[in-house]
């Protein structure tokens, strides 16, 4: 439990597992305090002060009388996100050739045989140098800032509507293939928790953190501008308006 255990009120309705944990933790802390006392009175003072401060930060000595503690195994089963630094990437590995086969099976139907995209389904390659042009293409190769994010997204969201359906090895293989067809890695690249954080994505420096500038208007009330001209007008009829499954006739 949080804070100094000696201040914990008795919790008659605690879960058994919780009580065991509490007892173990309290026991360990007391042993540590006793050791510290034997070594030096000063150490005891510091440890107590830190424990008390921790108690204040976390809402005081109140025990979690609501909710159930998650076990490490339960957390591991849920904890499937991957950060840019690779934290959270699972064990396993996959190569480009495996990824090519998996792409044909799981991805090509929507993203195209050559990952070129179809209709409004995005392309997965190309667009290098397009970001400051007339028609920016935001692909893995041209835009995505880090390779673990490619793993994370495919794992959690692809194929569409099938979150976490692919095994880690399969996702690694797909990432290896997609990085390869974007010209980012060679064809002998093996994607894993060790290699992905080290991949240098072309647009890794293309993102700006806050603060960002805010667009500012001006509160003028009289003769604020010359009489305006109309430069563009929306088509009067709307195309492709749908209500549920039905297209609405304008």
């Amino acid at each position: 439990m949080c804070g100094s255990p000696e201040h914990q009120p008795a919790q008659p309705r605690q879960q058994g597992r919780l009580r065991t944990l509490t007892a173990a933790f309290a026991g360990a802390l007391w042993a540590w305090l006793a050791m510290a006392l034997l070594l030096a009175g000063l150490a005891f003072v510091i440890v107590s002060a830190q424990a008390a401060r921790a108690g204040e930060q976390t809402g005081g000595p109140q025990a979690p009388d609501i909710g159930q503690m998650l076990t490490p195994a339960e957390i591991a089963a849920l904890d499937r996100d991957a950060r840019p630094d690779g934290a959270g990437l699972p064990a396993g590995a996959g190569n480009v050739a495996q990824g090519e086969d998996l792409y044909a099976t799981h991805c090509a139907a929507c993203h195209g045989e050559f990952a070129e995209g179809q209709g409004r389904i995005p392309a997965l390659l190309g667009g290098e140098g397009s970001l400051n042009g007339e028609a920016p293409m935001r692909t893995i190769g041209s835009y995505w800032p880090h390779a673990p994010g490619v793993f994370d997204y495919i794992h959690r969201a692809m194929p569409e509507g099938h979150a976490f359906s692919l095994k880690a090895e399969e996702v690694y293989a797909l990432v290896a293939y997609l990085l390869h067809i974007n010209g980012i890695v060679e064809d002998d690249f093996i994607a894993s928790a060790r290699t992905l954080p080290r991949v240098m994505m072309p647009n890794r420096n293309g993102f700006i953190r806050p603060p960002h500038p805010v667009a500012k208007g001006r509160r003028c009330m009289r003769n604020c501008r010359p009489a305006p001209d109309i430069s563009a007008e929306a088509p009067a009829q709307m195309e492709g308006v749908m209500i549920g499954e039905e297209e609405q006739t304008p």
């Binding site: 400051n132 935001r138 993102f207 700006i208 953190r209 806050p210």
Partner: peptide, 23 residues
């Protein structure tokens, strides 16, 4: 975490080709 939905989407691409995060 810089997930796909806060980098490849929902970041604001600027004229110079760089994108603003967490707008």
């Amino acid at each position: 975490w810089l997930t796909r939905e806060e980098t490849a989407r929902y970041a604001d691409l600027q004229d110079d080709g760089r994108a603003r995060l967490f707008t």
